[in-house]
Design a binder for these strands. Structure first.
Length: 665
RNA sequence: GGCAGGGUAGCUCAGUUGGUUAGAGCGAAGGCUUCAUAAGCCUUAGGUCGCCGGUUCAAGUCCGGCUCCUGCUACCA
């Protein structure tokens, strides 16, 4: 029976480039999609850029551009990366599209019709200077529980306490460093509690979710009344204004998943289909792939929206874990935050597709990119075992082609053909690791066969020409079979196999029918080996070119050791007094406090750049163990740290929380 | 803090409803082979299954406690 399956990957946020972590998901989804297409099902693979929200707005502002321009460039970059990794979307849209606005408005109207929208006043922090309400992530302050300074407005990194931004002690806007004001904001909420029963049923009994996920939802959300979901944000916000509610915008997570439908709408417009055939048709299986961080958006809010608006709920939500690099979180400072484009400079995308496939299961465990394993698996599985099969047999039948009849192979081909359903089931359940393991057992059996039959010996005896052709016919068919099974993962290998044997691989069933009596093309290498050095190079941070004009003016000083650095005692100091030195052109006299009654008298060359009155009370950094020096106006007992070239002077200040006397490490 | 998940060979992971000597791949050691991109084949070594206790004829598997790791925690996405 032909199934109709609409598959999505989560929408990448237009705030950054595609990296190896994203690719876990897109490759995983693409394998599923290609597998289903091979099985003859009707598949739509939808994705789009997620373009709205404060983060986009702020970043565009920082880069001196408009959000529209930024998301256009990012979309192009994303699509280029996806294409290079062979991600075969049927349509790639954007949440900032007319189609998406229409989908959002349609759902919104249905929510209003069913009295599922509530309006409430919410106290929120407001940045007066920037004239905007601040999301939790844009407020920093001292944790109300453990007093750790410099924590975000949602949770403390030190003690793990979750709180709301309004509870922070001494909150500051991360944009302006000013103290935000508490203001009421009228916001719109989707009422979820009326759909609690539906959601409980769907999450627990529909089979759409992995059991861990169902347990998590039951344990954390569904065990108590569902809170109303806050779906609006006050201006300024980059997104869609809510119909008839000027100054109020949909929260990005309201319109982002609508992008799945909007993409389908745009796709159907191209193909002459109707999106309702996919989204309002019970025979369509909606399958979402996403990372565990966005679980509840897709398993509570999104199904609620779909349900209220009369769309199909997902048949399956497949959630995967995060990518780790050599056992650790990806990190920019460790050089393990690898963009897709960086990978592509050095390595073959098919290697990553296979490597991920060989590690992905249907659990939500994190997946580790382990350099040595990556090299080992690709070289040993793909090159040494799979591709090598063609390489060690094709040459012997270059002139004769394949035997007319499929020879007796002791049941090898039939045995591998019998595995078709088992392998297919592994793909279907997204247990690619199991699929790869099974396929590799086929490759092992084939290599053993070559070893037993020793075609290189047969070749030397003209009387055994037929036997040689038969043996190679068997080996090439076993290879072809494996290539068919691997096609969802390695479409490029499938193409090269097709070129060698003159038979395009389009259907799963081709693994069950041997190829006979045909010429074969001249053998060409199908895959190169991974060089470990290239993988290492990928994880070596690229040298930053010293193109900075400031660095040219003042080049970096000679390298020092940590011991040498530690001789310099840098301290946080408070400016207790600042006075003009009438006869000096550049100097101000500062009295610096190091806590208690320890003070230092310092002459600092900052006159002209700072008003003495305004300096009193602020914290600076000083070199506290500098040998005192007698100057024309008195003793200077240290030095205040400041940056600047060409007469500009900028004092350094510690973040709030630091106290006078603390040493810098 | 709460919730969810995990801890099995050097590494990455399988272990079905509790049932013989706990498996695979990679890596390691030894041998064979030379067609193939130093690829292939065979053999070997390696694990008190996180810790403690309980149920049972029998526990990696079930129950209780402890411990370590990871993620999430609705107004960042």
């Amino acid at each position: 029976m032909t199934r109709q399956i609409l598959v999505t990957s989560a929408l990448p946020y237009a705030n950054g480039h595609i990296h190896l972590g994203h690719l876990v998901e897109y490759i995983q989804t693409d394998i599923f999609v290609r597998f289903q297409r091979m099985r003859g099902h009707k598949v739509g693979f939808m994705c789009a850029d997620d373009t709205h929200g404060t983060a986009i707005m702020i970043r565009a502002e920082k880069e001196g551009t408009t959000p529209e321009k930024m998301i256009a460039e990012m979309s192009e970059s994303h699509q280029r990366d996806f294409a290079a990794f062979g991600i075969s979307f049927d349509h790639y849209g954007s949440t900032n599209s007319d189609a998406n606005r229409a989908v959002g408005e349609g759902i919104w109207q249905k929510l209003l019709d069913q009295d599922l929208v509530a309006e409430k006043a919410v106290p929120r922090l407001f940045d007066n200077q920037k004239q905007m309400f601040l999301a939790d992530r844009f407020v920093k302050g001292t944790c109300p529980k453990c007093q750790t300074p410099d924590q975000y407005g949602d949770a403390c990194e030190k003690c793990g306490t979750a709180y709301s931004a309004t509870e922070l002690i001494d909150p500051k806007s991360v944009f302006t460093d000013t103290t935000p004001e508490l203001k009421e904001s009228q916001q719109f909420f989707v009422k979820l509690e009326p759909m609690q029963e539906m959601l409980t049923e769907w999450t627990q009994n529909s089979g759409a979710l992995q059991t861990e996920v169902a347990n998590y939802l039951l344990g954390y959300f569904l065990g108590k009344p569902l809170q109303d979901w806050d779906v609006s944000r006050p201006a300024p916000y980059f997104g869609f204004e809510i119909p008839n509610q000027p100054g109020n915008y949909w929260y990005v997570w309201f319109d982002a998943p609508c992008g799945y439908i909007a993409s389908t709408v745009e796709w159907c417009a191209k193909t002459g289909d109707n999106a309702d055939n996919w989204w309002r048709n019970e025979n369509t299986e909606i399958v979402h792939f996403l990372g565990k961080d966005i679980t509840y958006f897709h398993t509570l809010f999104w199904p609620a929206m779909l349900h209220a608006a009369g769309y199909n709920k997902p048949k399956r939500v497949h959630i995967h874990g995060f990518l780790q690099i050599n056992g650790e979180k990806m990190s920019k400072s460790r050089g393990t935050f690898i963009n897709a484009s960086r990978y592509l400079e050095l390595l073959d995308p098919d290697w990553l597709r296979y490597y991920y496939a060989s590690k992905l299961s249907n659990k939500i465990d994190d997946l580790d990119f382990h350099s040595e394993e990556f090299v080992g698996k690709v070289n040993s599985d793909l090159v040494g075992r799979v591709v090598n099969l063609a390489s060690r047999s094709a040459k012997f039948v270059a002139t004769t082609g394949l035997s007319k009849q499929y020879p007796d192979d002791g049941g090898l081909f039939a045995k591998a053909a019998d595995m078709s359903d088992t392998i297919a089931a592994a793909y279907e359940s997204c247990d690619y690791r199991e699929a790869m393991r099974l396929i590799m057992t086929c490759a092992d059996a084939a290599n053993e066969y070559v070893d037993q039959k020793t075609p290189w010996t047969l070749r030397k005896d003209p009387d055994k020409a037929q036997e040689l052709q038969d043996v190679c016919t068997v080996v090439l068919n076993l290879f072809h079979q494996i290539a068919v099974y691997l096609t969802p993962v390695l479409p490029t290998l499938a193409k090269k196999t097709a070129a060698l044997l003159g038979d395009d691989i389009t259907s799963w069933s081709q693994a069950s029918t041997p190829l006979v009596g045909r010429d074969i093309a001249k053998f060409q290498h199908m895959m190169t080996r991974v060089e470990a050095a290239k993988v290492d190079e990928m994880f070596t941070p690229e040298e930053v070119a010293p193109s900075s004009p400031t660095l040219e003016k003042e080049p970096l000083a000679a390298e020092i050791t940590i011991d040498e650095f530690q001789k310099i005692d840098l301290r946080v100091a408070e400016i207790l007094a600042a006075n003009e030195v009438p006869e000096a052109r550049k100097l101000l006299q500062l009295t610096l406090g190091l806590g208690g009654d320890v003070t230092r008298n310092v002459f600092a060359g900052i006159k002209g750049a700072y008003e003495p009155d305004k300096l009193v009370g602020r914290l600076v950094v000083m070199v506290a163990n500098l040998k005192p020096r007698k100057m024309k106006f008195g003793m200077s007992e240290g030095m205040v740290a400041a940056a600047g070239t060409d007469g500009e002077v900028y004092l350094l200040s510690p973040d709030s929380g630091a106290v006078p006397g603390q040493r810098l490490h």
